[in-house]
Design a protein around this nucleic acid. Structure first.
Lengths: 190, 190
DNA sequence: ACCTGAACACCGTTCAAGT
DNA sequence: ACCTGAACACCGTTCAAGT
C-alpha cells in the first residue's frame, strides 16, 4: 500500500492518457492515490520533475517497442518514427509533455530522450557524418511537433486519432532525412 | 485612459518579453493595467484568445520585418527564417506561445500564422510543387522548436541570447529545405 | 521514514451591482 | 458600455506535527 514513486508515475500516466495535461495536477493525482497533496513531495521534488520522469518513461517505451520491431540498420529511423507516433498518439498531449521535458533540461537525465537522441544520431552517422547530431534533434523536434499538431486536432474534433501515422507525417520526416543525407560522390549512373 | 484590447495586448507583450509566460497571468495583467481582473473579460473572451492574439501580433511583426529586408524570390525563405529568430528570440518563451496558438486553432484566424504559412508555401511552390504546404508547415515547426530550445537554454543559463541565429539553426533549416526541394530532371552536368 | 492538516500565495472565470 | 467587488473552484508548495 505504501506510496512509491513508481505508483505515482503509473497514475500520472493514466490520468494523462485519459484526461490530458490540464487534469494532471498534483492535487488531482493525490486524491486519485487516496493521499494528501503534500505526500507526493516526499517522493518527487516538484511537478516539473514528475513530468520529466513521465516523459523519460514514455520515450523509453518507444525505444523498447522499436527495438522489438527490427534489427536492420537501414530502416531503423523509419521504425523509430513510426513507433513515436503509434506509442505517443493515444496518450493525450504526450508530445507536449515530452517537448516540455526536453526543453527544461537539455543535457542531463538517464533513460529517456538522450538515449533516443543517441540512437538517432548513430543511425544518422553513416548518412551524414558530422551533421548527425543536428539531424537527430531536428528529426525528433519535427516528429514531436507533427504529433502534437495531430493530437490537438484529435482533441478538438473529439475523434479518436488514427492509430497509423498519416502519410503527411511519414512524408515530412522522409524529406527531412533526405535533406540531411549527403549524396554519394559517385552518381548512381556509375 | 479607457481600457482597450490593444492596450491589453501591449502590456501582455511587455510582460512576456520581460518576465516570461509564467508571469503572464490575467491577474498580473490586470494589476499592471490598474484595473480589476474581471475588467479584462470585457475586452477578451479568455486567456487563450489573448495568447492567440498575441501570437498573431508577433508573427505579423516577423512578416513585416521580412518584407522590409528583401524582395527577391530565391532568398525569401532564408530571410523569413532569420527574422523569425531575431524577432522572437528576445521575447521570452515567445516560440512556445506561438506554438500553443498554432496548435489550439489550426485553421482559423486573420493575420498571423496563416499569412506566414501561405507565404512560405508560395515560396516552396517552385521548389517542390504539391508538397509545398507540407514543406511550409514543417519548416515553421522546426524553426519554432529550435528557437524554443534556444530560448529555454538562455533562460536556464541566464545569459542574454545571441541576437544572430546560430549556425546550427541555419544549417538545420537549410537541410530541411533541401530535403523538400525536388532535384531538376536534368542533372547539373548538362 | 512516511504521511496529514493546514496554511500561504497564487490562479482563471463569472456575475451581480454600480456608474 | 464599461468596470468593481466579491465570490467560486481551483492551483503548487511548504512544513509543523503526528505515527
Amino acid at each position: 500500500m505504501a506510496l512509491t514513486r513508481e505508483k505515482i508515475l503509473d497514475t500520472a500516466f493514466e490520468v494523462l492518457r485519459q484526461f490530458g495535461l490540464a487534469d494532471l495536477s498534483m492535487r488531482r493525482l493525490a486524491t486519485e492515490l487516496g493521499v494528501a497533496p503534500g505526500a507526493l513531495y516526499y517522493h518527487v521534488k516538484n511537478k516539473q520533475e514528475l513530468l520529466t520522469h513521465l516523459a523519460s518513461r514514455m520515450l523509453h517505451r518507444v525505444l523498447v517497442a522499436s527495438s522489438r520491431r527490427g534489427r536492420a540498420g537501414t530502416g531503423k529511423l523509419a521504425i523509430i518514427c513510426g513507433e513515436l507516433y503509434t506509442q505517443l498518439m493515444p496518450v493525450k498531449e504526450s508530445a507536449e509533455v515530452i517537448r516540455l521535458a526536453i526543453a527544461l533540461h537539455p543535457q542531463e537525465q538517464g533513460p529517456g530522450h538522450l538515449d533516443l537522441l543517441d540512437i538517432l544520431e548513430s543511425e544518422f552517422k553513416p548518412l551524414c557524418g558530422s551533421s548527425a547530431g543536428l539531424a537527430a534533434s531536428s528529426l525528433l523536434h519535427l516528429a514531436l511537433s507533427l504529433i502534437e499538431e495531430e493530437q490537438t486536432r484529435a482533441l478538438l474534433t473529439g475523434a479518436a486519432p488514427a492509430s497509423d501515422p498519416p502519410a503527411s507525417y511519414i512524408s515530412a520526416l522522409e524529406h527531412l532525412i533526405k535533406g540531411f543525407t549527403v549524396s554519394p560522390s559517385t552518381p548512381p549512373g556509375y
